[in-house]
Design a protein around this nucleic acid. Structure first.
Lengths: 204, 204, 204, 204
DNA sequence: CGGTAAGCGAGACGGTACGTCGCGTCTTAAG
DNA sequence: CTTAAGACGCGACGTACCGTCTCGCTTACCG
């Protein structure tokens, strides 16, 4: 992304400052949340001048996006040998990332600025959801090859339903305590439904 | 909730100012969004002093919550005679409320403060989602009585899946253009799945 | 000034409230000073509604003026038998009234609003200084009759010099610690100077 | 007082803004007076942000004090060759500074906050009165050297009497129209009194 | 003796200014 | 040419009082 071996004139940007900025951003995000987190506070706590931040990022959203991105680990497609094993792995991975202070704040922030900064949710979509969606497609294909499941079901749809449920559970915890159970149940029903003879939907 | 016929001392609060505040809040929410909307601007446009707003609400969130709540219409359970007709009505109603500037901002705001102001999402849950969830249960029971659908399916689960998908579609429009189709398809699969012979899930 | 025995219709004004207002005004004036004293605070502490104050007084200045005036005692011209005895009595009386918290605040307030509310200093002049100035004239005449002092000196001038010195001492305490001594000395010099053969002032 | 050639980090404070603030403060002080002058108005008219003012001064009093101080000219001790000539020069100089809108407001403000901000009157004493008091002492010594006046009179006392009279005249204009005449007369009497044989003060 | 007119406390009203915080930009000297 | 530091103009924050108003309730005179 940055061709750091270019012979640019002048003092190079401090890697140390850069790391301090990103770490402090994540710390503050987890501590006080996106809204209550000020660039001023990040600069002060990181021991960095404000312009040093603004030179790198145009907005708080951009900074936070990069901070989160910087800590993202490479996602490995699970391969446990069975469909349900893989699905459990996917759910567990998603839950670990999502259901902790930083994760909650991240999602909250992403969602909160979905309308005001649409490109922001887009980043989340491309960087985070898309890879998992594709991983699920792979998992699904493998299960199909093992004849575990029917072939006429769109894995993307299943993935979106699962993601939607997790998002829903994140936003409304009081209505959906047993969200993991709901996800398993729903996935099962979808797979069965695809196998069963079609039910006519007369309104369509 | 309040018996309102109490003989409180002092000048009563102006209903006119109150209405002006709520209306202006909704106008500005739709126009510029939650973050960019200042109490100062609301007060000025509503022709009201700032303290008049702060006397009623402790925070912007509280004000906006009440403004939205004040415009909520009574929800009527659909009864078209067929399950799919009722479902379409539910979807259409939800879409009308959600997929417009004010609706998007409302949901964005509710979700955005889900972690910082959890009681806020709770209000949304109780006032808005719960009634629709219960309405769906009624619709489902009626369909069951008409032998349109199997009996061993939890209507709440179906509702949550649908809601989750809509929320997902609202937040990530780029990934889910055809969300209405997805919802119909998913609902159909769930209903079929419930009818079909169970698929064993060995990991459970 | 007010023909209080008029048969006005309606409920008469509460003497109790009136006294509470005046007393609280003086208390607060001494405690926090004129500037930091708010009508709101007076009303609250006096257990009185704001309109009850505004019905009586048009401004804070007016209220304070009346509060001070209400506590003014009748001034009695001293008559100790000797000029210096009388002068000491005058000085002591003035000092008692002026050099205490309420007195300092009163004078400060009078002076502070001398330019913005000139009529205010005028009240002070008429109600407080004028009587003492006239009293001094009487004292002076009596001393002249006793042949203690020369006749060709204007007692008003002497009084003004004394008053000026006290005012000066009140405002600049650091420069004029021994103001009582200064006053005695000055008075003595003026009396002597009036007796002595005139010094020519060529510039006049 | 500050050696100003210190190498402080960060952007130095804008001299331009500083001057604009001081000038606008004096303008508004003369126009509307101390009480009616708001920091908000100063900031707006000076084309400056409020924090820029609050960064420099903790209170309105402090700001005004510095604004006045900034325009103070160096005082030159008069030397006309005769005592009365010098005295006239002193009086004229004092009158010019004091008896105009800005001067009146200045003194009013200084005096008004004499009790609430005692250090404020102190500044006035040190910066303004003390130099003139010392100047008068010099003038007096020169006159004594010319054998114009007796030696056993404290020039500070004379100065204080004159200052007190001017202050008195400023506060109570209605009682002391001919204050210049009073001052000349008083000064003359004091000088004569010092020459004359002492009058016994029996009460002491 | 009942009507009525003013005063009462309480407290909300539209405002103005307060003093603070954070914004995103700028201007320094130092590296 | 970047850095840390920090001032800048700006705008919104939430609070304190301003002086006015509107309540429901006395209170006391007057017909």
């Amino acid at each position: 992304m940055n061709h750091s071996n270019k012979n640019l004139p002048g003092r190079p940007r401090s890697t140390q400052s850069h790391q301090a900025i990103l770490q402090t951003t994540l710390d503050l995000l987890a501590e006080v949340g996106y809204d209550r987190m000020s660039i001023e506070a990040i600069a002060t706590r990181a021991g960095v001048g404000k312009p040093t931040i603004y030179r790198r990022y145009q907005s708080k959203a951009e900074l936070v996006a990069d901070a989160i991105e910087s800590r993202r680990e490479e996602y490995v497609i699970p391969d446990t040998g069975s469909l349900w094993g893989d699905i459990e792995a996917l759910i567990t991975s998603a839950a670990q990332i999502t259901f902790n202070p930083l994760g909650r704040q991240t999602v909250a922030m992403m969602i909160g600025s979905a309308t005001s900064n649409p490109e922001f949710a887009q980043v989340y979509w491309i960087k985070y959801l898309q890879p998992r969606r594709q991983a699920f497609a792979v998992v699904y294909e493998r299960a199909k090859a093992r004849h575990e499941i029917p072939s006429d079901l769109d894995p993307d749809l299943v993935f979106d339903v699962i993601s939607g449920l997790m998002l829903y559970a994140l936003v409304f915890p009081e209505g959906t305590k047993a969200w993991e159970t709901s996800i398993r149940q729903t996935t099962q029903l979808l797979l069965q439904g695809a196998k069963a003879p079609s039910v006519s939907n007369e309104s369509q």
